[in-house]
């Protein structure tokens, strides 16, 4: 690893000041599960490493029935242990479960996962389906960025130099809604995600699809929404024939590079499976 200067701000303002001061030469250290690896590989060689973990008020999970708010320093383990998320945002919990083994979950943060902007980030498809947004702070400015606009390319986000992601906001899920995240690992059970699909389905009392959102991971330069596929289901009853059409449409919207043919097939398989599972959840919920 190249040497660097290590900085430990105690407040968001101090962190933002340092990030502004050092610009591109600075990197934010949160969980470190991606960044430390990148630095060892010399793919990242920051001159200044800004450890934000000593900022006291960024590690929280709050829900006020309108928004779920997740502080930037919340680890995957903390999310995994939240019964509130399990009960109210099970689709997000599915995503959290897809994230690496215990040791990684104990360090890695959901905000870090988003900022690393890997196309295969497991939380991204669910957050896309949930219409989440992220709150950022920079010198004298706060922004609220819809997650859909956050990713700009593989390992690239819309964050500017000096801008710090401080919170993830997830709007509450309407009633009669079921969500699922399904993923296939590249090879073994503990592996980077090859294809990840999140679906969130809202049905009316007649079982007609009121709203549907489909988030895809690892099949395009960034995590994406399959909006054309979503449209096919709008105000329709979800049936097998239509589902496979939706799966095929999602394939069209995806643009996988390596193992492209297989990944494309899997988009269709997982979209269909995830939609069925989401519908099953709504229906069983309605029955209860």
């Amino acid at each position: 690893m190249k040497n660097f200067e290590y900085l430990e701000p105690r407040t968001v303002a101090e962190a933002v000041f340092l990030l502004t001061e050092y610009g591109d030469e600075a990197k934010v250290l949160a969980g470190g599960t991606d960044l430390i690896v990148q630095m060892k590989l010399k793919k990242q060689t920051p001159k200044y490493l800004v450890n934000i973990k000593k900022i006291s008020d960024l590690d929280y999970i709050r829900y006020d029935n309108k928004f779920l708010r997740i502080g930037a320093l919340t680890t995957f383990s903390a999310l995994a242990q939240s019964t509130m998320i399990q009960e109210n945002f099970s689709i997000l919990m599915d995503s959290v479960r897809a994230v690496g083994p215990l040791q990684i979950r104990n360090r890695g943060t959901i905000a870090g996962n988003l900022c690393h902007a890997s196309p295969s980030a497991d939380t991204a498809p669910s957050l896309l389906a949930l219409d989440a947004r992220v709150k950022t702070v920079s010198l004298g400015e706060e922004r609220m960025i819809p997650i859909k606009e956050f990713f700009k390319g593989p390992f690239a986000t819309c964050l500017k130099a000096g801008e710090l992601l401080t919170e993830i906001l997830v709007p509450s899920i309407p009633s009669n809604t079921g969500g699922t995240y399904l993923w296939l690992p590249k090879k073994t059970a503990v592996d980077e995600t090859l294809v990840g699909v999140a679906t969130l389905v809202t049905l009316d009392v007649n079982g007609v699809c009121d709203d549907v959102k489909i988030g895809l991971g690892s099949v395009a330069p960034t995590p994406i929404r399959a909006e054309k596929a979503e449209k096919l289901l709008h105000k329709k009853k979800i049936e097998d024939g239509l589902l496979s059409e939706v799966g095929e449409m999602a394939v069209d919207e995806a643009a996988p590079r390596s193992r492209a043919e297989y990944r494309a097939k899997m988009v269709s398989v997982l979209v269909v499976r995830a939609l069925k599972e989401s519908v099953r959840k709504v229906v069983s919920h309605m029955r209860n």
């Binding site: 290590y6 250290l29 470190g32 599960t33 430390i36 690896v37 450890n51 383990s77 215990l102 040791q103 990684i104 104990n106 360090r107």
Partner: peptide
């Protein structure tokens, strides 16, 4: 907490 000590400075 169980962590990989190689990923912690």
């Amino acid at each position: 907490k169980a962590v990989c000590s190689c990923l912690v400075l």
